[in-house]
Each structure stands twice: as structure tokens, then as C-alpha cells.
Design a protein around this nucleic acid. Sequence first.
DNA 1: TTTAAAAATTGATATATGTCAGTCTTTTGG
DNA 2: CCAAAAGACTGACATATATCAATTTTTAAA
Lengths: 253, 253
Amino acid sequence: MSVALNNARFNSKLTSQCQNCSLSALCLPISLADDDVNRLDQIIERKKPLKKGDILFRQGDEFESVYAVRTGTLKTFNITNSGEEQITGFYCPSELLGLSGIDKNIYPVSAKALETTTVCEIPFSHLEQLSEQIPTLKHQLFKVMSRKICDDQQMMVLLGKKNADEKVASLLLNLSARFKKRGYSATSFRLAMSRGEIGNYLGLAVETVSRVITRFQKNGMIQVDGKEISIIDLDQMQKLIGMSEDCDKIESI
Amino acid sequence: MSVALNNARFNSKLTSQCQNCSLSALCLPISLADDDVNRLDQIIERKKPLKKGDILFRQGDEFESVYAVRTGTLKTFNITNSGEEQITGFYCPSELLGLSGIDKNIYPVSAKALETTTVCEIPFSHLEQLSEQIPTLKHQLFKVMSRKICDDQQMMVLLGKKNADEKVASLLLNLSARFKKRGYSATSFRLAMSRGEIGNYLGLAVETVSRVITRFQKNGMIQVDGKEISIIDLDQMQKLIGMSEDCDKIESI
DNA sequence: TTTAAAAATTGATATATGTCAGTCTTTTGG
DNA sequence: CCAAAAGACTGACATATATCAATTTTTAAA
């Protein structure tokens, strides 16, 4: 992207693709030296785009890589013994997925594209090796995993303590924050997932999700056109969930 | 402990405390060389016992250490904006807590002893440094964190999809498995946490927990005397939750 | 573009679990 | 050892959300 080149990095001698990737500010450890970025770049494989519905990895597959989302969205899920799908997360650009596979060398969930999606594949053994030579990278990895633990625990709070309204509002605000971080609008975005997937993720029936969204719209809190969402009254919404989503709260202290 | 000394390690030249700790098989990376164990040992501080109700660290405190439980039990929890406590985990001997603090350098939860408890404090900066010199240790750390992510996601499935019976049964079987791993009885143990704490953790009212436990007892599935629990019909209980708790299932493939 | 299939919405009803209240039991501190 | 407080249990009732069913809208395929 010429835009990407016309920034502060324009004068860099780097030739790496990571360097030129519009996501690098988010996905690269901030303080990696130029040379380190090049080394990281060399272990990354850019895979061809996934179409909607394509599987990136399957529950039970041997764990080899973690993936950074470049464009699009994925969901991770397990198939429970009773055969139902349980969604455990949604992944947007710049986010890393697959970390849960490290423990047993097997992915404990499947990952599926919700729309056309591109990812960078990062073979974990290489990443781990490289992290031996680059302490900052190692620390970043610890941080990313720690944040995931923190986020998942917030999700536990949501599932255990919140009512349907709070659950849906939390998801919308969470997505909003993630879009914002990537430089997109915090108040107007497109949901890549269906109402059914939202319900599955939040522990609600589809019908309940639908009703909550309708109610929010009648309240004038949001405006909805299919998958397009505009948050009209961000304040009210934040109040609704008691905003200070704990992990987030701490961030702002 | 003389018992500990009378095992295969008796002939070791190691003098470290970790080496002699009855938990070492669980808490030490299995394949650390003797010398590495000694180095690990040197960074660990053994703290004086916590009494029931004592706080190990507080939500918002600066993150400095992770802790390995030696004896006793702790819970981690956050105080939500509305002032309620939400328990995010219980920690038994050999388990590591505090990892969620790495990300923001602040503990996002508090940790409190449920009974008299001893822990080893492991300053994280030292551990991280040491992990640079001992790749196996680094890998173990990644694994521990990955497992935590995996476990938390299972918890999300539990909270989102399971009914009260399944939730309580899942917790009992989960505790059972953890006791078993440490060499204790898998079918007879003492709950360190109150019914209220169980309910809080599982997203249920105390009364519901009480009723479920009573029902299980009437079914002859368990026998209860206050906090003492005996699982009578493990099979039935495993069937109840559809056993193959996913992460566990994969382990057994 | 037309048609079939999938997803979303809405209403009526059922139900699991929460809430409230009272009692009994266990734990704890003096 | 006793008294007070905390925890646990049980029943009656309330309610949020699930389930079922029917309709409308959107998406995907031919």
C-alpha cells in the first residue's frame, strides 16, 4: 500500500513484508529492532485467502502454527460430546489465534472463516526458537497469552453473571473497541457473525438475541440494518454494562 | 520429609528445596537437568502460610510474581463495578496463579486463601530471565499458559451451555481429577469452598447449588457430609456431563 | 432474475433457575 | 463451653429466557 509506505517507516532499510503490513503496529512487538523484524518476517507464511466457511484448523489436528488475522474474521469453536457447536471466540484483523494448541500439541478447537479471510501462518516452533534470540519477542508472547487469559476470564464473568441485555451490549462494545483499535469506526461496523453465532457465543437463544437487538433499536441505543450496526448512544450502552469491564478498567487506571 | 528423601532422588546430589518438594514432579518441568532445577530453586521464595481469608495479591496491585500453591486452596476473583465478587478460579496444590498479571503488569483479579495455605512466590522477571537460559523452562511456561487458556475456554462452555446439574457435576469431577493427579483420592475429598463460592463460580444461586447437591445425594450419585464429598457413582456422573470434557478428551486420544 | 434455502423476527407458552423467607446446622470468637 | 454469626437447606413463588411455531427477510444457487 502506498499509504503504508508514506509513513515514518519510509526511510527504513527494511524489506520485510511484516514491515509493510498495515497491521504491523498492532501485531509486531513494538520495540523490535529492524533486524529482528526481518527475522520474524522470514518465518511467516502468507496463506491464500479463506472463503466463508473454510476451516483454518480442526479440533484434534496436530498443532503447528499460530495465525495472525490480516483481513476478515474467524470463529473458534468446539463440538461438544452431544454434537453441538460451542463458539469460544471471534477473531478480527491483527488478532492471534491458535495459542490454546501449545499445551497438548493439538488444537482443542476448530477455526472457521466467517467471511473471506486472510491470515499469516506463524509456525510455532520457529517462533519459539526466534523468541530465544529476541527476549522482547518472548515477552510479547507471554503478554499476548496473558491477555488472552484475562479476556477469557472476563468472558466467564459475562457468561456467569450478566443478563441477556448486558451480554449483547458487552459483545457490541467489545467489537467496537476492537474495530477502534484498528483505526476503524467505533460506532459503525458490520457484524461478520450471524445472530445464531452471537447467541451461541453468549449462551443465549437466537430468538433472545433478536429480541434484545430489536429492543435496543427501539430504545434508540443502536440502529440496525441487517448486519450493519451503528451505536447511537454509546454512553447509555456503557452504562448498561456498568462499563469498566475490569481488565479494561485496569488499563485505564 | 524423610519419605521424600527415600525415593529415587535419594542419590541425587541436588540440595535444592524444589528438588525435595513433594510437588516437584508436578510443578517442575519434567525434563529440567539437575543444575537447572537448582537455578530455578534459587529464585523461588517460600512465603509464610496464609490464614483462611488472607489476601495473596489484590486486583490492581503491581504484578511481580506468579505463585505455585504448595498446600491449601485459593480463589481468584474480581470485584465487578456493581460491587459483587465474581470468582474466576480455584487453585489447588501444584497449580500456578497470577499469570493473568503479565499482560498489563497489574493483577486483574485478587487472590484469597480459602483455608490455611502455603505458596512459593516466583518473581516473574527472574523466571523470564531464567527461561532465556533454559529453553525447556520457557516451553513449559508457554504450555502452562496455553493450558490455562484451554481450561478457561472449557469453563466458558460450561457457563454458556450447561444446566445446573451439569455445572455442579463438572466442578466435582474437575476437582476430583485435580486431586487424583496429586495422588489423592479421586472419589473422596473435602471442598475448600463454600456452597456460596461454588454458586458464584458456576453462575448459580446458592440455593440451586444446595438443591443440586441434595438431589445428587438422593440419587445415590454422591454422599455428602458438610464439605466432605464422596463420589459414589463416578460413571453416572461422567455420563451426566457427557464426559469427554473436550480438552480432557483430546488428552486421552 | 427466479427460486429455494437459510437466517431473522415476532408472538405464545413452558420451564429452569432465581428470589424471598423461614428453619436448621456449623463455625467461630469470647 | 456458649452465644452469635455465618452457612446450608427447603419450600413457595416470580421471572428471565428457552422453546415452539409461524411469518418475513435475506442470501445463495440455478
